[in-house]
Design a protein around this nucleic acid. Structure first.
Length: 566
DNA sequence: GCCGTTTTCGGCCCGACTGTTTTCAGTCG
């Protein structure tokens, strides 16, 4: 799939046009880029079918450029832009406070082309002498350089969610604060988060802002005002707090949860109905007709309430208009966790400890699925140790149902790494890929399809093998897997590990559209990681999944029936 | 560059905060 390549180049064209000071075109390129980002199809296939222009935000000009990129790896427009502005704009724009206008001035006046040039110029005090810059902006740039060098990547949802909740709680517990909510991408439970947005109402905004910028975990204050302040935490993530009035809380939430495209469309709908929508409310001329409550705003726009996880401009507005939004799976619908590791293979805690924690989480059943076979890296349970492992299940005294499970490696040819006469001793076999990721799409698809034909396999673990920010998933024809799943009742997993979330949201949506059921598992290697379930559920919700689409929402009795196990 | 129950041309979301200004441009979300 060349989707990522196309996305990257379109974004870079947008950056360069921005620096050139060209209006409106940058946002057109970014919009096209985001459209491709939300696709769960191969852009090359769409191009071959001549259907690029059917995609929103892609017209005559950009479709030609996409074809050029697919054929040659780049496009003339991009190359000539780079020539005319031969600078490392990506890292320069990553410096906090530097935007396209400043980057242009710095290049024209001081010939600053990269972070090194920028640092030298700032240290020599050259920047503060430029018109429009000063002492403070020079200092800010110096600080920003360090940050741009050290990070730049987005944070994983699962790594910062608890931090966000803790800040939310500290605000909630203060006397002045009357309402608190997370907003932005973290409220939408996006897999990666740029910064944490929080919205509050307060009886004493000044006091609340003081409390906020003095939070224990705050390293720097980026800005502070009566309605908006930003801090940077020790972990490096930025947190924005906004204080709004009680009767603006709903409209502010609507505005700040986003995403951007979703908001642009809701605003346009407002305009088409003769209203105006902004963070202060929904207005008819100057009269406010909604604002306190989000639901009210959506309803007055002729839309059903849209859950935050769906607000990605991915069809939710049309569905809300037609009253056909899915009734999303709830965060408390899960009845069991079906991929769990213990100290028998590469986990830390015992079967009993995992079961105890699962009971606390309110589950009715779990499957312990330690690695079996010859996978050396994960301390796999080899044939010799299998009997010991199975006996441990008999010994474990626990209050909830435990399925005797294992995770078995799928070999490059699609065979499993353990013989059938051993596999049959287990109630619950998860099969997954842990090696030879680089096979062709065709081979990889056949490899997994073959594993799905094994009658002992119940689940395919982390089906695409991707690691967020680190490894692309393997090339795979998911539609064929969906079909096979429907034939064989072998279920594809939504792995809830923060760096996996695999299947990912748009793949979940495709699965649901193919009437393919899924299972959500944490792949926990210690008791604490059993808490990751919420990120898997969030991924399911972002993929429009309902309770009925997720197998482990079934009661123990029905779950057993579904898989025909006891 | 895209798009159209106002438009095939003329719009394109808009407000808070900051720093450098003395009324505003740039950045950010």
């Amino acid at each position: 799939m060349k989707n990522l390549e196309v996305i990257k180049i379109l974004n870079q064209i947008a950056d360069l046009l921005d620096i050139k000071g060209i209006e409106f075109k940058p946002s057109a390129y970014r919009k096209a880029s985001r459209t491709i980002e939300s696709l769960n199809k191969n852009i090359e296939d769409i191009a071959k079918q001549g259907k690029l222009k059917d995609l929103p935000g892609i017209g005559q000009g950009i479709s030609k450029k996409i074809i050029e990129i697919l054929e040659t790896g780049t496009c003339k427009e991009f190359e000539s832009l780079k020539k005319s502005i031969p600078i490392d704009y990506e890292s320069l724009l990553a410096v906090e406070g530097l935007g396209p206008k400043s980057v242009k001035v710095l290049y024209k006046k001081l010939n600053i082309k990269n972070l090194n040039d920028l640092e030298k110029a700032a240290k020599k005090g050259k920047i503060k002498k430029l018109e429009g810059f000063g002492e403070k902006s020079e200092n800010q740039i110096l600080q920003g350089i360090d940050f741009a060098k050290s990070s730049g990547k987005r944070f994983l949802l699962g790594h910062i969610y608890d931090i966000a909740l803790s800040i939310e709680n500290q605000l909630k517990n203060s006397r002045e604060v009357t309402k608190v909510s997370l907003a932005g991408s973290i409220k939408r439970m996006k897999e990666t988060i740029g910064d944490i947005d929080i919205l509050v109402t307060s009886k004493d905004p000044k006091k609340t802002m003081d409390l906020f910028v003095n939070l224990k975990d705050a390293k720097d204050i980026i800005s502070k005002g009566p309605t908006r302040s930003s801090i940077r935490l020790n972990s490096g993530i930025q947190v924005d707090l906004r204080v709004v009035k009680e009767d603006e809380f709903g409209s502010a939430l609507q505005y700040f949860i986003g995403n951007k495209e979703h908001n642009v469309i809701t605003r346009k709908i407002a305009i088409s109905k003769g209203y105006k929508l902004n963070e202060y409310g929904l207005f008819k001329s100057s009269k406010k007709i909604a604002g306190k409550d989000e639901k009210e705003i959506y309803n007055k726009l002729g839309l059903d309430y849209i859950e935050p996880e769906l607000r990605e401009n991915n069809g939710e507005i049309e569905a809300a208009k037609k009253h056909s939004l899915p009734k999303l799976i709830n965060y408390n619908d899960i009845k069991g966790d079906l991929q769990i590791h213990t100290n028998f293979s590469d986990g830390i805690d015992t079967i009993q400890a995992m079961a105890k924690k699962a009971k606390e989480l309110g589950y009715e059943y779990i499957a312990i699925t330690d690695h079996v076979g010859n996978l050396s890296i994960a301390n796999s349970i080899t044939e010799k140790r299998i009997d010991n492992y199975l006996k441990a299940f008999e010994k474990a005294k626990t209050e909830i149902k435990i399925f005797k499970g294992c995770e078995v490696n799928i070999k490059p040819n699609g065979d499993l790494d353990l013989k059938n006469d051993i596999l049959k001793k287990f109630d619950f076999v998860v099969a997954s890929i842990h090696s030879n990721f680089k096979q062709t799409k065709d081979l990889m698809t056949k490899r997994i399809l073959k594993a799905m034909e094994n009658k002992y396999v119940k689940v395919i673990g982390h089906p695409t093998g991707r690691i967020i920010n680190a490894r692309k998933g393997y090339e795979l024809d998911l539609e064929k897997l969906f079909k096979k799943s429907n034939e064989t009742n072998v279920i594809l997993e939504i792995n809830a590990q923060p760096e996996r979330l695999d299947l990912k949201d748009i793949d979940v949506k495709a699965a649901v559209e193919n009437k393919c059921k899924l299972i959500i598992s944490t792949d926990a290697h210690n008791t604490n990681s059993l808490n990751y379930m919420k990120f898997g559920i969030a991924t399911a919700r972002r993929g429009w999944a309902e309770k009925k689409d997720i197998v482990n929402t079934l009661s123990l009795t029905n779950f057993k029936k579904f898989f025909d196990i006891s």
